[in-house]
């Protein structure tokens, strides 16, 4: 584990170093400096008109230099974003996400392929980075779920000072990590609710079925912090 981490750190450091070097090799910047130096020489010789011309020409490379740096930066970010997404895909794949969370995994893979094409085919680095971030967000849901056990049932708790409700339950990271998905729990348990058509009333000790919402595999019953 430590060796893997060390390898990763070295890899990132090498990439950053290489990238820093490439920034300093900015041909427009080099030209700016060269022309400015020539301008100074002309100035020393008293050829002020030539000095002015060279200095203005040096300035004319400024915008191109800045645009070049921005593009390199965007490319670096996009490349780092792609690598992160790829690493996360590999990580969740090693946890069996392909079978446990097929929909989310497929969505993450689609984002990766899209980000890859935007980077390598279109050279649209800004968009590629955004797509990678979206892919990361999608896969992070799997990480949140996979890191904890994902129960198929939930035993309603009596919470002092706080009500256990479908909204809160859906928001738990081991349930959906998304409160807005409470309806899925309600739909799966509608017939067992204490009051018909009242999703707000649940009672301590009730066993709620937690249906799969994104193809994830669920098993066991969650009760007081333990999945049995």
């Amino acid at each position: 584990m430590f060796r893997k981490l060390l390898f990763f750190v070295v890899l990132i450091s090498a990439a950053v170093f290489a990238w820093s070097q490439s920034l300093q090799d900015n041909e427009f910047y080099t030209k700016m400096v060269e022309l400015r130096d020539m301008s100074r020489e002309a100035f020393e010789e008293g050829d002020y008109a030539e000095a002015k011309r060279l200095a203005l020409e040096s300035q004319s490379y400024s915008e191109r230099s800045e645009a070049w740096i921005e593009e390199r930066l965007a490319a670096f970010r996009a490349s780092a974003g792609l690598n992160q997404l790829k690493n996360l895909l590999d990580q969740v794949a090693s946890w069996g996400a392909e079978t446990k969370h097929p929909k989310v995994f497929a969505e993450g893979t689609d984002y990766y392929n899209k980000a890859y094409a935007e980077f390598h085919n279109d050279e649209n680095y800004v968009q590629s980075f955004k797509t990678s971030r979206s892919g990361m967000e999608v896969l992070t849901k799997i990480v949140a779920i996979t890191d904890v056990e994902t129960p198929a049932y939930y035993v309603v708790r009596l919470l002092p000072g706080n009500t256990d409700c479908l909204w809160n339950i859906a928001g738990y990271d081991f349930i959906y990590n998304d409160p807005s998905k409470w309806r899925a729990i309600y739909d799966a348990n509608e017939s067992a609710m204490p009051e018909a058509d009242n999703p707000h009333l649940i009672l301590p000790g009730m066993i709620l079925e937690i249906p799969s919402v994104s193809g994830e595999t669920r098993s066991g019953t969650w009760q007081d912090g333990i999945v049995k």
């Binding site: 301008s39 100074r40 000095a51 040096s58 300035q59 490379y61 800045e66």
Partner: peptide
């Protein structure tokens, strides 16, 4: 004087470019 002004501006442009690189790094 015009040449001096142009050289000062060129120096500033170079410094700006260097600062952008530093910020980027």
């Amino acid at each position: 004087m015009e040449a001096e002004d142009a050289i000062i501006e060129a120096d500033r442009a170079i410094e700006r470019s260097e600062r952008i690189v530093e910020d980027a790094i």
